[in-house]
Design a protein around this nucleic acid. Structure first.
Lengths: 125, 125
DNA sequence: CAGAATCCATGTAGATACTG
DNA sequence: CAGTATCTACATGGATTCTG
């Protein structure tokens, strides 16, 4: 299959599928949370300490969205003090692969892109 | 390589690489423009007519960003009326593959995700 | 035709303070 | 510990108007 044919997957239904997933994972923290949860279950504070810069509010929102989408499971243990564990679901794990593909692309092409930006900016400025 | 090892690619430098690419392609139109340009060169108006809902301003901004990143080339023909053609660069084409992988994931898992959301919402509401 | 410029609505994210 | 609530700042995106 050529990339031309494959790119129809992106435009497909007017871009609904792509838009849907980018709305889900395109924000500032979601993919980082998913990647951080690729491994043993973590509790809230562990998650927060492993994701430098994320605020409580943003972590809460992000895991809630992921839970709603069925990509992360949230288990509350009825203890005092409370303990809540987060874990990727089977579906959530399947997201790792395409996400890594994207990260690979980013790592591979970043130098090139930054050079292009520098050229563009000096030429325009 | 396990997904666990691979997911380090995402968290890598504290998520810089992923953040960089999501800032680039995570917006509303970029991937749609890239996918639409996977094929013969198109002029501004052609591009706009093939991407339902995009405004002039957003198309202009999006192609400018892509040009700055070196993913799209912009060729101005000195004619009256003006003609401008857009085309994916070689680098731009390499983005198609991981983007399609993501679109595939979205298409595959959308039904499941929507079911999860429905369950979550009724349970919470 | 292909945009540039301006204005405005909305959403996203962060800081801060409080609580079961 | 694991949140919730509130407020605010900023970025994103859209509509409209104007132009080389």
């Amino acid at each position: 299959m050529s990339t031309y044919e494959r790119s129809c997957k992106i435009r497909g239904d007017g871009g609904r599928a792509i838009r849907g997933i980018l709305d889900r994972i395109g924000d500032k923290w979601t993919l980082l949370v998913v990647a951080t949860l690729d491994g043993p279950p973590l509790r809230f504070s562990e998650l927060q300490s492993r994701i430098p810069g994320i605020s409580q509010r943003m972590l809460t929102r992000t895991v809630r969205h992921l839970e709603r989408d069925g990509l992360v499971s949230r288990t509350v243990y009825a203890e005092v003090p409370p303990r809540v564990q987060y874990e990727l679901t089977a579906t959530g794990r399947t997201l790792i692969e395409p996400a890594v593909a994207l990260a690979d692309w980013a790592i591979d092409h970043n130098p090139e892109i930054e050079r292009s930006q520098a050229t563009y900016d000096t030429g325009t400025a």
